[in-house]
């Protein structure tokens, strides 16, 4: 699998640039959702449920409910943007638009192309996250400058989900088959990764499962950063992500080349 690395060159960035250019052709439709979505959530959950819940016990203290879910929204935003980019959108480029067929006739290798796809997926997650931070910051729910760490971190988090998405894209027979990973992985993570309620309220076994989910660790880091603190134990979350992301990237590229070389 290390052989994958030999075939990746800086030209992968050309693929990233291509996707970025497409993104900015339709920038209004791309940037509006991450700007408006948190406002809806914060109104519904923050003001609605927040009126009932008010305070959430968290790490020995308590914080307001809106402050609790805001970083969860950022984390799930990264997940959705990155995962859907390298699943549905990559599939469209691969299968319907035949974009990769055109790209492999240039000096790019398939490995370059897939690396570029993943980097773009990660970037899209980070862009979505940054835009959302503007809206959330408007509610005074981000403690700067510590919260700024969320932006580069979202790139790593995005890379994880982009790589995961690419692995699925390499094996699905048709585009509707993405419903399975979406409902089996993404939606449960969205709900059970400490995004909308603290994990302590769950039974022990469920907490153990939640700790195995990558989004739990991403939410952890983002929440601490949003609250303006960076405790040392975040290193474990970071370590988990890095250890999971690197092989997943290689696997995604490997599986995609296996699918596309005929």
């Amino acid at each position: 699998m290390i052989g994958v690395l030999r075939n990746i060159s800086p030209r992968a960035l050309r693929v990233w640039q291509r996707n970025r250019d497409v993104y900015f052709v339709t920038w209004k439709t791309n940037l509006l959702p991450p700007l408006l979505e948190p406002i809806l959530y914060l109104l519904a959950f923050g003001a609605g449920i927040g009126a009932l819940v008010k305070e959430v016990p968290y790490r020995g203290g308590t914080i307001g409910y809106a402050a609790f879910i805001a970083p969860g929204l950022l984390a799930t935003q990264v997940m959705f943007q990155a995962f859907f980019e390298t699943t549905y959108n990559t599939f469209v480029r691969m299968y319907y638009q035949k974009t990769f067929d055109a790209l492999v006739t240039t000096p790019l290798t398939l490995e370059d192309i897939m690396a570029g796809e993943m980097l773009w997926g990660a970037s899209k997650g980070a862009i979505g996250c940054a835009v959302m931070m503007v809206a959330i910051g408007g509610f005074g729910l981000l403690d700067y400058p510590h919260a700024l760490i969320i932006v580069p971190f979202s790139l790593l988090a995005g890379l994880f989900f982009a790589a995961l998405g690419l692995c699925f894209t390499a094996v699905v027979p048709q585009i509707d088959a993405f419903n399975f990973p979406t409902f089996l992985f993404v939606m449960p993570m969205f709900l059970f990764s400490g995004t909308f309620f603290p994990l302590d309220v769950l039974p022990r076994w469920a907490q153990a499962i939640a700790l195995a989910l990558p989004l739990t660790h991403i939410t952890n880091v983002m929440r601490e950063a949003a609250l303006g603190r960076l405790p040392a134990d975040l290193a474990w979350d970071l370590l988990y992500l890095m250890v999971a992301t690197v092989p997943l990237c290689l696997l995604g590229i490997r599986l995609m080349t296996r699918r596309l070389v005929k």
Binding site: S9, R18, D21, V22, V25, T26, Q97, K98, T99, D101, A102, V104, T105, T106, P107, L108, T109
Partner: peptide, 20 residues
């Protein structure tokens, strides 16, 4: 890579970028 840098391919299927 060296070969493809010097080749131009007009493939059977249209694979132009529809967004550009």
């Amino acid at each position: 890579r060296r070969i493809k840098a010097r080749i131009g391919v007009c493939s059977q299927e249209d694979n132009l970028d529809p967004d550009f």
